Amino acid sequence: MSQICVRATVSGRVQGVGFRFHTAHEGLKLSLSGYARNESDGTVTVLMCGEEKNVNALLAWLEQGPATANVTKLVHNQIDWQAIDGFSIQ
């Protein structure tokens, strides 16, 4: 299995709705490492690293997010591998 890292930017109603908490929970369930961070422009940046199939599963989840969110756009790209411990909320 290949290990990859992907950085995603999620737009819509994604701040103040528990998006980062739920993303970290999903990431940990998928044995991924990384973080979810609010940005000043109202988006959330998610860095996820781990097995490619698990990263793809989290990307699919991010297209909808938790029931409290309204995702309108998801942009992502693969980046160089980063060794990160756990999945944090920043």
Results as ranks from 00 to 15, higher is better:
Asn54Thr: 01
Asp41Ser: 08
Cys49Gln: 13
Ala67Leu: 08
Ala67Cys: 02
Thr43Met: 09
Val55Thr: 10
Asn38Val: 07
Thr23Asp: 06
Val17Arg: 12
Phe21Pro: 08
Arg7Tyr: 05
Gln78Cys: 01
Ser11Asn: 12
Arg13Tyr: 06
Leu30Met: 08
Gln3Asn: 13
Asp85Val: 10
Met48Gly: 00
Gly18Leu: 03
Thr72Ala: 13
His76Thr: 03
Ile89Gln: 14
Val44Lys: 11
Ile84Asp: 06
Asp80Phe: 00
Ser31Lys: 07
Val46Glu: 10
Met1His: 11
Asp80Tyr: 05
Asp41Val: 02
Leu32Cys: 05
Glu26Asp: 01
Gln90Tyr: 07
Gly12Ser: 11
Leu47Trp: 10
Tyr35Asn: 07
Arg20Gln: 10
Glu26Pro: 01
Gly27Ser: 06
Asn54Ala: 13
Leu59Pro: 01
Met1Thr: 10
Glu63Pro: 00
Val75Thr: 15
Gly65Val: 02
Ala24Asp: 08
Asn56Thr: 00
Asn38Ile: 10
Thr68Cys: 00
Gly42Val: 04
Gln82Met: 07
Gly16Glu: 09
Thr45Gly: 10
Ser11Trp: 04
Glu39Ile: 00
His22Ala: 13
Asn56Met: 06
His25Ser: 04
Val14Ser: 02
Gln90Asn: 06
Thr9Met: 07
Met48Thr: 06
Ser40Thr: 12
Asp41Trp: 00
Gly34Ser: 06
Gly65Pro: 05
Lys29Ala: 08
Cys49Thr: 13
Leu30Val: 03
Leu74Arg: 08
Phe19Tyr: 15
Gly16Lys: 05
Gly50Phe: 11
Ala60Pro: 03
Val55Pro: 11
Gly50Ala: 13
Gln3His: 15
Arg37Pro: 01
Leu30Tyr: 03
Thr68Trp: 09
Ser11Asp: 08
Asn38Gln: 06
Glu39Cys: 15
Asn77Glu: 15
Asp85Gln: 12
Gly12Met: 06
Thr72Pro: 05
Trp81Ile: 06
Leu28His: 09
Ser2Tyr: 04
Ser11Glu: 15
Gln64Ile: 07
Trp61Pro: 02
Cys49Trp: 05
Asn38Asp: 06
Thr23Leu: 05
Glu26Arg: 15
Trp61Asn: 11
Arg37Met: 09
Thr45Pro: 03
Leu28Pro: 00
Thr23Ile: 09
Thr72Met: 07
Gly12Asn: 06
Val6Cys: 15
Phe87Asn: 11
Thr72Trp: 02
Tyr35Trp: 14
Thr68Tyr: 08
His76Asp: 02
Ser2Phe: 06
Leu62Ile: 04
Asn77Ala: 12
Cys49His: 04
Gln64Asp: 14
Val46Gly: 03
Lys73Ser: 14
Ile84Ser: 03
His76Lys: 04
Ser88Met: 02
Ser2His: 12
Gln3Lys: 15
Asp85Trp: 00
Ala36Lys: 13
His25Ile: 02
Leu58Pro: 10
Leu62Gly: 00
Trp81Cys: 01
Ile89Asn: 14
Trp61Arg: 05
Val46Lys: 11
Ile89Leu: 04
Ala24Ser: 15
Phe87Gln: 03
Cys5Asn: 05
Val10Asp: 09
Gln90Ile: 00
Arg37Trp: 01
Val46Met: 11
Gln78Met: 09
Thr72Lys: 09
Gly12Pro: 13
Glu51Met: 08
Asn54Met: 08
Ser88Phe: 02
Asn70Trp: 12
Thr23Lys: 10
Ser88Glu: 08
Arg20Ser: 04
